[in-house]
Design a protein around this nucleic acid. Structure first.
Lengths: 177, 177
DNA sequence: ATCATTTCTGGACATTTGTCTAGTATCTTC
DNA sequence: GAAGATACTAGACAAATGTCCAGAAATGAT
């Protein structure tokens, strides 16, 4: 991030690195998300339960930004769960620590603004694709732009993220071969 | 926003209020989005052209935040168009003016952070619904939560925003009656 | 290695959604 | 208020996608 000396120390002190075993909750539906963070290692699944069925809405891997945004921002109970699909490690920061850093370190505030701006762009692009592209086109785009993700994510979850059933993803994949 | 005196004046000076006739571009595909803003009046449509067909991805009405985020943030050519569907008025701010306000007015910086955080939540909720809900459920939700929007938006555009065809939206509407 | 468990694929059929199209209704403009 | 343009609805059929299911493949535990 380009931080140095006392500032860097302040920042590092505000984060706490937590290890997760496979299948542990990072955020649980109904509870308030106290932290957001960066995935250092492992894979984390966002999902909701709908008519008794789990629907995956997103998956984080290494070096990406993780959190139940709505709950963290509003400090209301989360609507979604985040759970580890593998063992892993996340560098977490609480809302109060985040606010303190943003207040005390002008450079960190700028960093946070940039992070938010780019997060918006990423989420909005996904929303856009969900409206405009077919399931097949979304899979093809992912194959083109994020092949590393595709190799790691179990297909059942990938299907759900793409907004299709596993049955249909299997069809899409056989078409593309 | 709760600003006063010299600060308020600085802020007001940074924005410029522009009137649009029906069917004018606010942002055009291929051009860099120099401004973002708030809609004071009128209705504005976001769309892309795909296989010669226009696909609506979003619609702004009064008192909402408008802009081609990806282009404004990255200062690269916009992938989408924004156009007025009615006569209207937008209060616009350029990227440089926005950055200046954020630098010079700590309160404005906080305001901007809050705006970004809430914008993320809104977009993410929409993304979520596109993955998890059916077209019919998305329409029903909109009917429940934003009936005023529903009354104003022409159905052809609404259909596209919901990710379905006008033919299908017509079916959904007749089911719900 | 073996067995059990989970994940992936694909057939058969059902349902949903899209395409094409025409008729009706609504809105504009003169 | 008549004529033309635009928007909405809906029938008939086609294509896309889902459901249910069973077998194959991969993974994990002993």
């Amino acid at each position: 991030m380009g931080f140095e000396g006392a500032d860097l120390e302040k920042i590092l002190d505000a984060f706490v690195s937590i290890e997760f075993k496979k299948n542990e909750f990072v955020v649980e539906e109904g509870k308030i998300a106290k932290y957001i963070g960066f995935v250092e290692s492992g894979m984390f699944q966002y999902y909701v339960t709908l008519d008794g069925e789990e629907r995956t809405t997103y998956i984080n891997i290494e070096n990406t930004f993780l959190g139940s945004l709505l709950s963290f921002v509003t400090q209301k109970p989360s609507l979604e769960n985040i759970r580890s699909l593998t063992d892993g490690k996340i560098s977490l920061i609480s809302r109060t620590n985040l606010k303190r850093l943003v207040e005390e370190l002008p450079l960190f505030k700028d960093f946070y603004i940039t992070l938010l701006e780019h997060t918006i762009c990423g989420i909005d692009a996904t929303r856009h694709d969900l409206i405009v592209l077919s399931g097949e086109a979304r899979y093809a785009k992912m194959l083109r732009e994020e092949p590393h993700l595709l190799q790691q994510i179990p297909l059942q979850y990938l299907a759900s993220m793409l907004g299709v059933t596993p049955r249909h993803l299997s069809r899409i994949r056989s078409q593309i071969r």
